[in-house]
């Protein structure tokens, strides 16, 4: 049986920009009525360029920012943080991994404490068990127990992203929002982190919302794809449908702009250059 973990109905988010002495107050429509749903163990990729509202959407899904209107359902329960306080259960269920692994870890906090913190805040698990769980999680994401007492600056970008993923998984979330998790990483490290994400998804039946602007990564990892453009979802469908038959002109522009690294395209380019 398939179970819908995340459902969004007509989500809208407006930001009111206050006017100053000489400027009028205005409203920025960051997200304009977006609907989608993600089933358990699946990956929805949200694609778009800077300013298209994909990170605003991530903030709404992660329950950091309330939506101006529309419904957000997590595991079938309606969540509205604008009107009622969030339950600890909900806080546990949704976690996020940010783009920049250099900015998202506290430089003065040891890795063990980074991983223990979510448990310390959200549960009453004793210190010894917190430590055991952090150790186990370190191994799970491909690090070693001796990393427990080290500081973030002692790790490479890829290792830090593993730590950020480990921290997000400490509370056994059902939904993980990944905001450009591999954009800052080198190609080979990117491959390792994508493999890790795929393994973890299989093991814990995790649901991913994967935000990216890299279409080749999206094609590799996503089950469903949503393309956003100026706050609207201009294209939404299964990966194969979107990639084989893009409907919206913006999606086609996006595909056309993505550099191709196959031999045929190179031959075509060189032939064109010779002719010119």
């Amino acid at each position: 049986m398939t179970q819908t973990v995340l459902q969004a109905k007509n989500l809208v988010r407006d930001y009111h920009v206050g006017g100053g002495l000489l400027t009028k107050a205005r409203t920025v429509h960051a997200v304009k009525g977006v609907s989608f749903s993600v089933e358990k163990g699946k990956t929805l990729a949200i694609v778009g360029e800077s300013g298209c509202g994909k990170s605003t959407l991530a903030r709404i899904i992660t329950l950091i920012d309330p939506a101006t209107s529309g419904d957000l359902l997590i595991d079938g329960n309606k969540v509205d943080i604008a009107h009622s306080a969030l339950t600890p259960e909900m806080r546990r269920k949704v976690q996020i991994v940010f783009q920049n692994p250099y900015g998202s870890l506290n430089p003065r906090q040891k890795i063990g404490d980074v991983l223990g913190e979510p448990l310390k805040i959200n549960t009453d698990i004793p210190a010894a068990e917190r430590r055991d769980r952090a150790m186990a999680m370190l191994k799970k994401v491909g690090l070693a127990p001796e990393h427990y007492n080290r500081y973030p600056h002692m790790f490479s970008g890829g290792q830090r992203q593993r730590i950020a993923i480990a921290r997000a998984l400490m509370l056994n979330p059902s939904l993980l929002v990944l905001d450009e998790p591999v954009s800052a990483l080198d190609l080979s490290v990117q491959a390792q982190v994508l493999n890790l994400l795929a393994d973890l998804q299989d093991e814990f039946q995790l649901t991913y919302v994967f935000i990216s602007h890299d279409l080749s990564v999206v094609r590799y990892i996503a089950d469903d794809v949503m393309v956003m453009y100026f706050g609207e979802a201009v294209e939404y469908g299964s990966r194969d449908a979107v990639f084989s038959d893009p409907k919206h002109s913006y999606t086609r522009t996006l595909f056309a702009a993505t550099p191709r690294a196959d031999v045929e395209s190179i031959k075509a380019r060189l032939a064109k250059k010779k002719a010119a």
Partner: peptide
């Protein structure tokens, strides 16, 4: 791109998600 000589180039090219065959991406 057609016939990379060094192992490192081969690794780089196969780590491209475009070239993924099967479930896992080869890594360095």
């Amino acid at each position: 791109f057609e016939s990379p000589k060094s192992n490192y180039t081969k690794a780089l090219l196969s780590a491209l998600p475009d070239n993924a065959t099967g479930d896992r991406l080869p890594t360095i």
